[in-house]
């Protein structure tokens, strides 16, 4: 009972900060999208961690009197995942257009072209 404790939250925070770091520190736009999706997944992990009840089972009604985990975070995250992939696709589409207009997907090069122009 004692062991997992707050450990899960710390993993989530590490993943979240790793995603944040990738978004801030890397100039490549596709890598930024990967960082963004890592950040997203860390939030999903956080929600589902909170929804877990120890000794609980998946929230599908079965015979007997089991303990169910909290279904509410599952619902929220289920929709969030699919919306996440839709927005990811939109971001990638924008990146493809940027590549076509500027010929590069490195943020620094784009900036240089903008200041030169």
């Amino acid at each position: 009972m004692e062991w997992p404790g707050l450990y899960n939250y710390w993993i989530v925070i590490f993943l979240m900060m790793a995603g944040l770091y990738i978004v801030m520190a890397r100039a490549n736009l596709i890598k930024k999208m990967v960082g963004l999706s890592i950040f997203q997944v860390s939030v999903f992990v956080f929600y589902l961690t909170m929804g877990k009840v120890s000794g609980g089972t998946a929230p599908i009604v079965i015979d007997g009197d089991p303990v169910y985990s909290n279904p509410l975070p599952h619902v929220l995250i289920l929709t969030a995942i699919v919306v996440g992939v839709a927005t990811l696709a939109l971001g990638l589409a924008l990146i493809v257009r940027i590549k076509e207009s500027y010929g590069t997907i490195e943020e620094d090069d784009i900036e240089k072209q903008e200041t030169d122009a």
Partner: peptide, 29 residues
């Protein structure tokens, strides 16, 4: 953590479709 529905979606979306989409974007970039 008992989120079977969520695991389902994450496996299909994250490992399947978003990887394919990113590969598609990589081909162009």
């Amino acid at each position: 953590v008992d989120g079977v529905d969520v695991a389902f979606t994450e496996a299909a979306v994250g490992a399947g479709i978003s990887t394919v989409l990113m590969l598609g974007a990589l081909m162009l970039c």
